[in-house]
Design a protein around this nucleic acid. Structure first.
Lengths: 336, 336
DNA sequence: GGGGGGTGTGAGAGCGCTCTCTGGAAGAAT
DNA sequence: ATTCTTCCAGAGAGCGCTCTCACACCCCCC
């Protein structure tokens, strides 16, 4: 590999000082047009690219952003396309800002310290944390150490940490209201883990709507996996065989529920309607296609990135979710 | 953010020179034990962390590795857990080597130039390319520019570029042989895109086995999406209604085929057996659970990383695949 | 025509680190 | 006892860049 040209060489070729060359490269306007031209030509001819390390050393900026997936997240990583969407969104914005995206999956339990070291270290300018558990200490720690941080999902501990969240509450409310509108009478829910904000909010949304309509809640709790959805559905059916609708707190659990219902010979949507949450690709291919609540995952990634890049005014953003109606809640079924 | 301590401060506190402090920090053995001890204590007390930029500037190494997903890959990103597995594997090894993982999704068409600039730039020490199309020019370009490169998947153009590939050929052969052993007579395939090595190899595996058994090939081509699998299956059925087995070149297409078969009231596996490839999570939850060929994706990621970290002897590795038998190919079905 | 203000360029320090080179002390060999 | 070798620590250069400061120059106004 031939040695890369330095600013010095560019300056020499253009017949100016290193300082002026630097000014041109960094887009300063206070340079005479003809000189700017000469420097740009030299840059072009030599194929000059600034040395990031040297630049960082003096500017104290790294021009890179860390995206951290804490250990619990890495486990579901492969089956949950939410993360893929976030990564894409973040990547899009980071690329536009001409910075680098450093991905950190804290696979090992000790991974946190590694992240802490790297982040407090000047390696990265800011950290985006795809934290699932609201009680995750990492955002607080980093923030206190002076590292700009933004969380995907509202942190559980109240405070002024910046975050981008989905409207889980509103989405759940809309989903359950939709079931009511379809004439469903006994509406159960398969809730998510109650130590995750998303799980809590979605259950609250369900409860809010049922309370307003004077119906009682029928709740089973899963852990966002397909298997737990199947188990929860069995339990729900055993508890109350009259159930005619289920709101699952995510699609994976809804898919599990569908499986149980098939095994128990309950027709969907004729006997029982099912709604999920997330709108993962598999939802639309389910049998029957699953009504669900869509989340703007790529947009979430973008906003997260924009926030740490200081392109965003607000420090706390909640993105709207959208009900996607498919066959699993088709109306008229309740009449049978 | 309080100023981070420098080596100078550590040296002062330990009562040694900067050079010696540097030696200790970098684990040189040629330092007296008591001095090493003193320096380590100072590091501890001050919470010293080396400045990577300064280090890179002099060592000419970036201590970070780029993982590049070319544009075509980013599209399927969200539905294909293969990539998630690779990322995890790479991340695991990189973490162990105490380096950084820079993720680059070349979302925009112009993204290639950005990757090229970054890589030839000293930003990263090496590049891992999750290239899907065998004819991707990027690996060759970077390699010629002196950047260490390794590809996930065998490059289409013959040469000595390092790669880690799955045993697509062997896996396909085993799958089709399995169908023969189950007594299936007319075995069709839904092939993948023929501009991807994985698509080509899997089709060749299918052909090899059928040729050896004097059966004729029945081929439809898809593009690895669920929808294309459904379409291909319809076409296959129209072409030859006597088909009693299908080998799909990936699980998504197999899932699509399953959907078509259900719509056409063909029983699986009684009337027709289905095999997929990849063993994505959805395969085991399909109706019926899908027989498929498992790929060691995390292991692939690890090997890719180890290769660019020079921890691997061989420059070209093919990882074994494994047939996972589930209900979709249960035997006896052909008799009905 | 001389002083003030503005504008564009160059000189040079220094970011924090590694690494070579030199020097001195201690041990081995004659 | 003297010289040679070995080993360890320190001095200092310099990686490539940015940025402050000083300086030269030109235009305008009184």
């Amino acid at each position: 590999m031939r040695a890369r040209p330095t600013l010095e060489k560019v300056a020499a070729r253009a017949g100016v000082s290193r300082a002026t060359a630097s000014r041109v490269v960094n887009g300063s306007t206070r340079v005479a047009p003809e000189i700017r031209e000469a420097v740009n030509r030299a840059v072009e001819e030599l194929g000059y690219v600034p040395n990031q390390a040297a630049r960082s050393l003096v500017t104290q900026r790294a021009d890179s952003i860390a995206l951290v997936f804490p250990e619990p997240a890495t486990r579901v990583f492969s089956e949950d396309p939410t993360f893929a969407g976030i990564i894409r969104g973040v990547s899009l914005e980071i690329e536009q800002a001409d910075k680098q995206l450093v991905l950190m999956l804290t696979g090992t339990p000790g991974g946190y310290q590694r992240v802490e070291r790297y982040a407090t270290n000047g390696h990265v300018d800011a950290v985006i944390i795809a934290s699932m558990h609201g009680t995750d200490p990492l955002p607080g720690i980093l923030s206190r150490r002076g590292v700009p941080v933004v969380c995907s999902g509202r942190p559980g501990v109240p405070g002024d940490l910046p975050y981008v969240d989905m409207d889980n509450l509103g989405g759940a409310e809309r989903a359950v209201r939709h079931l009511l509108e379809q004439g469903r009478r006994r509406i159960a829910t398969i809730a998510g883990p109650q130590d995750m904000i998303a799980g809590i909010d979605r259950l609250n949304g369900y409860r809010n709507v049922l309370r307003d309509s004077d119906r009682r809640s029928i709740v089973a709790v899963g852990d966002f996996t397909r298997e737990s959805g199947a188990v929860a559905m069995r339990q729900l059916l055993a508890d109350d065989p009259e159930i005619d609708a289920v709101f699952a707190a995510n699609d994976l659990m809804a898919l599990g529920a569908l499986r149980t219902l098939r095994a128990e010979h309950r027709r969907v949507p004729a006997d029982i309607a099912v709604v999920g949450f997330d709108d993962i690709p598999a939802a639309s291919y389910a049998e029957p296609p699953l009504t669900t609540v869509r989340q703007p995952t790529v947009e979430m990634g973008r906003r997260l990135a924009r926030m740490v890049l200081d392109l965003e005014e607000r420090r706390q953003v909640v993105l709207p979710t959208e009900l996607v109606v498919r066959d699993s809640t088709a109306s008229g079924g309740a009449a049978s």
